[in-house]
Each structure stands twice: as structure tokens, then as C-alpha cells.
């Protein structure tokens, strides 16, 4: 239940963000004064920042980044670089 709510809210955010981006891209095609073009490009950055932050967090939480938290999840085994695999038993 909690996971479903979390994912729904995440999808809602990305859907809204995509709509804003689509609108800004459509504005690029229209002929607008230079001042408005600058503000449109600045808004593009404003719009991309939260998505970049959310994606960075998702990568960290998925364990793609070799951080302390990721290491603690894997019992100290590095997530990137060479790993030692030990096989016990006959």
C-alpha cells in the first residue's frame, strides 16, 4: 500500500514535469522575443533540476553508487570494481 502510494506520487510528478517540458519545447518552435527566449531556457533548467535530483536519489538508493549506505546493504562488498567470490563446501 505504502509503496503503491509512493510510486503513484512519483509517476504524477514525472507526468507533470513531462507536460511542462513539452510545453517549453513547443515554445522553442514559436517565434518569441529574445528576452522571452532567455526566460524560457532558464525555466527549462528550473524544470530539469528536480528530475535530476530525483534520478540521482533513485540511483543512490538502487545501489548503483558505491556509497557507505550501499556498502552497508551489501555487507561491505563494493558495488563497483572487482569482487571476491568465495565458494564454501565440497
Amino acid at each position: 500500500m505504502k509503496n503503491a502510494i509512493f510510486w503513484i506520487s512519483g509517476v504524477a510528478f514525472f507526468a507533470y514535469q513531462s507536460a511542462v517540458l513539452a510545453r517549453l519545447v513547443a515554445e522553442r518552435g514559436a517565434s518569441v522575443p529574445a528576452e522571452n527566449r532567455h526566460e524560457r531556457d532558464v525555466e527549462m533548467v528550473w524544470t530539469l533540476v528536480p528530475a535530476a535530483l530525483v534520478v540521482a536519489l533513485a540511483l543512490m538508493l538502487a545501489g548503483f553508487v558505491d556509497g557507505d549506505w550501499a556498502r552497508s546493504r551489501t555487507g561491505g562488498t563494493p558495488l563497483v570494481g572487482p569482487r571476491e567470490i568465495r565458494v564454501d563446501g565440497p
Binding site: 510510486w7 510528478f13 511542462v20 526566460e39 525555466e43 530525483v54
Partner: peptide, 29 residues
């Protein structure tokens, strides 16, 4: 720099919408 307020309005909703799932993460984690 946004006299009609449309850009401010879009960004207010966007960041509020991003905050919602991110604020749930402490419980998910």
C-alpha cells in the same frame, strides 16, 4: 521576470509535486 506569473505557477506546482514522493522516502527506507 515573470510578470504574468505563469512560469512561477508552473514551478510552484512542479516542486510541490516533487516534494511529495521524496518526503515519503524516509518511511520507504
Amino acid at each position: 521576470v515573470d510578470p504574468d506569473g505563469s512560469r512561477t505557477a508552473r514551478q510552484t506546482i512542479l516542486y510541490s509535486a516533487a516534494l511529495l514522493p521524496v518526503s515519503l522516502l524516509p518511511a520507504i527506507l
